[in-house]
Every structure is written in structure tokens, then in C-alpha cells.
Design a protein around this nucleic acid. Structure first.
Length: 278
DNA sequence: AGCTACTCCTGGTAGC
DNA sequence: TGCTACCAGGAGTAGC
């Protein structure tokens, strides 16, 4: 489940290998991964050079150029099981490589995705792909004051609100649960009832959680997320609530509760995150 | 505005 | 052992 810390890790690790490379070949093995027409996808990418690799929310973006001219962007979203794998051209990327991008140094960037939820775009209109995304939680624009004001304007439970990419970009199920625990807030708390001091606590919790996860290269479960080098992340051992139903809270020892909120598994400590304290 | 339900997918696993 | 049923879930959409 790649969220902001996982995508950030992938982008940081791939950047030195990809920037400056020219795309020599494009192979689409599963058309559903590509948004838009396949011929347009091929012609938009082939022959371009990767000028920059960066992240916005859970999207990764490669800025493309032809010579000195801007040539649009390759944008991707890993959704549930998507991975980026940079491998020698001779290596077998496995049965789940959906799109493969051959580079001028002989290596191939594979978009590997068992469940086929991931998507790739080749577009000149970044804003069209990322329309309506909320602020970056690690950017300057995301301030305690902004969050307090934004929360006051929403009559919605914190859990689905924080999962909403239009509210804040980049949080997913894992880091919403972790952030709410760090902020000692119940996932069903209504956003507009939060005092400014609690909004500040949530702001701090979100940033600390994301930064800590990035510093350990994200969280890995089962056969899912790996860094482009194939390493698992190291943050899953630090999780305080996610995936820990029935196990003792690392703060107070109370068993972690797992419920369903808006169809999403939701983990919290009933003692550290009481329902009524706003 | 915000909620639920449904869709897309398939490997892994619980239950028998 | 081998089968089936169900689950995980990010995001888009429809309907209330």
C-alpha cells in the first residue's frame, strides 16, 4: 500500500538513475494500466529524456524533454500493489510487469502491479491528472493554522477526511491510523469540533509520522511494497496501531481495536484515543 | 455536503 | 490434500 513515504522513498532512490536517461522503448503488457490511447502513450514517451523525477501526494512524476523543449510528463500512481523495478534489460521482470520502459543505458524501468489497480499517464496537462489534490503535508503551505481552519469547515469524521486526497495529499490507511494515534484523536471525531490546540496536535502528528516513515523507507507487508532496489521498508516494525488489532497499545498496553469506518479497516487505542475529548 | 455501496483485481488464507 | 469463499483496499462513481 504505497502512501506518501513509500512513493517518496521510491522517487529518491530512482532519481539519480533515471534523470538524464532517454527513453528508448516502451512496452505495454496490460493496456488497462495506461490511461488514454496506447499509440499516444508510446509516441509521447519514446525519444524523450527524463529531466526531473518528483512526487506529489502519492503520484510520481517524471518531467520529460526533447532536446531543450519541454515534452510533458510521465505520471504514475501505484495504488495498492504497484511497484517500480529498475533492472537490467536481460532480467525477467516476472509475470506482473504491466508496462516496461527501456532506457538508453540498457536498463528497464518496470511498472509491476499484481492487482492491476495502478495507473500511468503520459500527459502535458499535469493539472488534469492531479486535479483537486489537497496540500502537501510536508510543504510550507501545510500549517497548523491552515489545518485548524480546514477542519472547522468540514463536518466529517477524521478518518475518511484524512484519507480524502482532496483534503490532504498523500495519506493512506496506514498513516491516517498512525497519525490519529500519535495525535490521540478518535477516528470518528467530527472535524469541525476540534479545538485549535488539537488541530495543532494533529498537524504535528501527521508530519512526525510521515517523516519517521520516510527515514525508514516506508512500511512493507507480505510481498507488497519494496524499494526499487528490492529492499523492504523498515517502518512496519514501528507501527503503533495499524495491523496490530488485539495487541497491546505501545503507549498504555490496552488492546488495539480494529473496526470498519467508511469501508476501511481502522485501528485505534480506545484508551489513548477517547471518543469525547475535543 | 457527506454517507453508503459498488467497481476494478488477484494472491493469500480461513474454513471445511 | 484440495476446494471454495472471502478478504485487502485507493480512488472513482452513482444514488440517497
Amino acid at each position: 500500500m504505497p502512501e506518501l513515504p513509500e512513493v517518496e522513498t521510491i522517487v529518491r532512490q530512482l532519481e539519480p538513475a533515471l534523470v538524464g536517461r532517454t527513453i528508448a522503448a516502451v512496452q505495454v503488457r496490460w493496456p488497462g494500466t495506461v490511461v488514454g490511447s496506447l499509440p499516444a502513450f508510446h509516441s509521447a514517451l519514446r525519444g524523450t529524456r527524463i529531466a526531473r523525477l518528483w512526487r506529489r501526494g502519492k503520484f510520481f512524476v517524471a518531467d520529460l524533454v526533447r532536446g531543450r523543449m519541454r515534452a510533458g510528463h510521465l505520471v504514475g500512481h501505484l495504488r495498492m500493489t504497484g511497484r517500480l523495478l529498475l533492472a537490467p534489460g536481460t532480467a525477467d521482470p516476472g509475470p506482473w510487469a504491466r508496462v516496461s520502459v527501456g532506457l538508453d543505458d540498457g536498463r528497464v524501468l518496470h511498472f509491476v502491479d499484481t492487482r492491476k489497480f495502478g495507473r500511468l499517464w503520459a500527459t502535458e496537462r499535469l493539472d488534469a491528472v492531479m486535479a483537486g489534490l489537497g496540500p502537501e503535508p510536508l510543504a510550507k503551505e501545510f500549517t497548523p493554522a491552515w489545518l485548524a481552519r480546514a477542519l472547522r469547515a468540514r463536518r466529517r469524521r477524521l478518518k475518511p477526511l484524512l484519507l480524502d486526497q482532496g483534503f490532504i495529499a498523500g495519506l493512506g490507511n496506514i498513516y491516517v491510523d498512525e497519525s490519529l494515534h500519535a495525535a490521540r484523536l478518535h477516528p470518528l471525531t467530527l472535524a469541525h469540533t476540534l479545538r485549535a490546540s488539537l488541530a495543532r496536535r494533529l498537524h504535528l502528528a501527521i508530519r512526525r509520522t510521515l517523516r519517521a516513515a520516510i527515514s525508514r523507507e516506508g512500511s512493507s507487508f507480505d510481498t507488497f511494497y519494496r524499494t526499487p532496489g528490492g529492499r523492504p521498508g523498515r517502518y512496519q516494525t514501528r507501527l503503533r496501531v495499524y495491523g496490530r488489532a488485539g495487541r497491546p497499545c505501545r503507549t498504555c498496553g490496552t488492546p488495539i481495536v480494529r473496526t470498519l469506518v467508511a469501508q476501511r479497516a481502522t485501528h485505534f487505542c480506545p484508551r489513548c484515543q477517547p471518543r469525547t475529548e475535543t
